[in-house]
């Protein structure tokens, strides 16, 4: 069952159609990459899901129910534009934000203490937010996003501004939450992170959903039937060989019509006395697919 169903959602701002008839399903417990170039409409869509704004058209189901006023409490949202009350103390602020998400004060305090301990931030409890570094503030904000244990977390560029160590820490936590069953929407335009983390993606461009599905399936769909062969010996191209796209040192990049041709070609190479060290299919990166789809659309 889907934790989130977006059905034909549109949102218009004056003369600008920010979200244009977008539909997708997000399976419960999955990590969904919401991708798109700057200004594609990702944030507009997220704001609709978090009930910050309303859609002009379409329907959104959260956990099978039509989105209502109680749902924001069950969503954790880390906006791209980060912000906390600078003059407020860390502990006080986290309790306040958790209470606004419907958590009782006592329970909020216990949970927050646990999280701060986990992130080795217990000593920050009485520090004002303005006394913390940017990275530290990010961690506090991350805690505020997840402390009420929402079934759906929306993270908009969660790693910007974090050093590699803290990035790793946050990534581990995201994976851990996911293992515990939390569904996560991960919005970014950094493709290497998406490949690493996401199972599903939705690619939005100019407000429209131009690509969606499981990462593996999408790569399969967009593959160019390219293969790389690394060999020992010498290679002279025969007329019956498939098209060689690149030949660098002892590595060939070729395009094959179907997988069966591969066996024939390898056999022919071996017949020529060449030693095959490596043979692999080259799948497109999400980055390649992203650029291809976005340029196509333009």
């Amino acid at each position: 069952m889907s934790i989130l169903s977006i059905r034909n959602v549109s949102k218009q701002y004056h003369n600008h159609l920010a979200v244009d008839n977008v539909s997708f399903e997000m399976p419960r417990g999955s990590i969904l990459g919401l991708l798109g170039p700057n200004g594609a409409g990702k944030t507009s869509l997220i704001r609709i899901i978090t009930s910050i704004t309303k859609a002009d058209k379409g329907e959104i189901l959260f956990d099978g129910e039509k989105l209502n006023l109680l749902h924001p409490e069950r969503i954790g949202y880390l906006p791209e534009e980060r912000g906390l009350y600078k003059k407020m103390k860390v502990g006080e602020q986290l309790i306040y934000l958790a209470q606004l998400k419907g958590m009782p004060k006592k329970q909020a305090k216990e949970e927050i203490e646990g999280w701060l301990e986990k992130f080795e931030m217990s000593s920050w409890w009485n520090k004002k937010v303005e006394e913390l570094s940017k990275g530290m503030q990010q961690k506090v904000q991350f805690v505020s996003t997840i402390v009420h244990r929402p079934p759906l977390i929306i993270l908009d560029e969660p790693f910007t501004g974090l050093d590699p160590l803290n990035s790793k820490l946050i990534k581990q936590e995201i994976m851990e939450l996911n293992r515990q069953g939390t569904s996560i929407i991960f919005s970014t335009h950094r493709m290497e992170q998406v490949e690493e983390i996401c199972e599903h993606i939705v690619l939005i461009n100019k407000g429209q959903n131009i690509l969606q599905g499981q990462v593996g399936q999408i790569k399969e769909m967009y593959k160019d039937h390219l293969f790389k062969i690394t060999y020992q010996g010498s290679f002279h191209q025969n007329s019956s060989d498939p098209e060689v796209l690149e030949h660098v040192d002892n590595t060939l990049t070729i395009r094959l019509g179907e997988l069966g041709e591969a066996n024939q070609f390898i056999k022919s190479l071996m017949d020529r006395g060449m030693l095959i060290q490596r043979f692999e299919e080259v799948l497109p990166t999400l980055n390649d697919i992203f650029i291809k789809k976005v340029t196509e659309a333009a």
């Binding site: 949202y77 906006p79 912000g83 906390l84 009350y85 998400k101």
Partner: peptide, 16 residues
């Protein structure tokens, strides 16, 4: 202040 701190976006994802 809330708008400039950007804390407002977090706030209105919790309250109207």
């Amino acid at each position: 202040e809330e708008k400039m701190n950007r804390v407002v976006e977090v706030m209105i994802s919790s309250v109207r």
